[in-house]
């Protein structure tokens, strides 16, 4: 059974409807990508999963319905969301940002261990742990956002455009670490990206979203071969 199963999901901001019945699913332990152009509804899909917008339709996580749940409760099920714009607590220190990521966890010892684990992935954050998070560079803030989400020890990690506005080298570094985390810690990842080439390298399965609907789905390899995807999203 799929870890995440989305059926006929609709969402709207006020009177503006953005999602018109999205269907997709994500296997436990996989990396699944949602691809699409600006404004296709990818970010809204992630928000809808976390109860950040009004929705209709079914969302099941690990066998139980989570649509209509408050954001705070979705987090407690083990879904961590790295939002677009990174959502840094700019006036708090790096370490405080990370501590907040583990806010709902009760196992203190595990949390302390996870600091070391994460500093292992991102040594740069350790150097800057007492620094105000708002003064970090864009790349460092993206690392912080991912790390904050990992502090939850999530079953499912939602990543919203981790490559946005970053230098290619840093993007590669972050994607490599995502791959490692997925393999070593069995964390499932739902990745939203405009950079389709990188996303398809990382993901095993992908969905193409256009104007609030899924228009194409398949394994990453199949999607890569698709003529239209190549022309529109991969650029060759």
């Amino acid at each position: 059974m799929a870890l995440l199963d989305v059926k006929n999901l609709h969402a709207a901001y006020g009177t503006t409807r953005v999602l018109h019945g999205i269907d997709f699913s994500l296997e436990e332990g996989s990396i699944t990508a949602l691809l699409g152009a600006n404004g296709a509804g990818k970010t809204t899909t992630l928000r809808a999963l976390c109860g950040m917008v009004d929705t209709q339709g079914e969302v099941s996580f690990a066998g139980s319905r989570i649509d209509g749940k408050a954001t705070e409760d979705v987090v407690r099920l083990g879904i961590a969301h790295v939002p677009d714009g990174r959502g840094t607590f700019v006036n708090l220190s790096t370490e405080e940002n990370l501590r907040l990521g583990a806010y709902v966890r009760k196992d203190r010892k595990g949390v302390e261990e996870d600091f070391e684990r994460i500093y292992g992935y991102f040594p740069r954050l350790k150097e800057r742990r007492h620094q105000q998070a708002g003064t970090l560079s864009g790349g460092e803030q993206q690392m912080l956002a991912v790390s904050r989400a990992l502090m939850l020890r999530p079953r499912l990690l939602l990543l919203d455009e981790p490559s946005f506005g970053l230098a290619p080298l840093i993007v590669r570094e972050i994607f490599e670490i995502m791959r490692t985390i997925n393999r070593k810690e069995k964390t499932s990842i739902l990745l939203v990206e405009q950079n389709a080439a990188m996303a398809l390298d990382l993901a095993s399965r992908a969905y193409v979203v256009e104007t609030g609907r899924v228009v194409l789905s398949g394994s990453a390899e199949e999607i890569k071969q698709d003529e239209a995807v190549r022309r529109s999203y991969l650029g060759y």
Binding site: T88, F89, L152
Partner: peptide, 24 residues
């Protein structure tokens, strides 16, 4: 205290605070 930190976080960035599970 964790609660104090959560309160500061909620005031500063309510959206992100909800995303880490704080009842803002």
């Amino acid at each position: 205290t964790p609660l104090g930190l959560a309160m500061r976080a909620a005031a500063q960035n309510p959206v992100s605070a909800k995303l880490v599970g704080i009842r803002v």
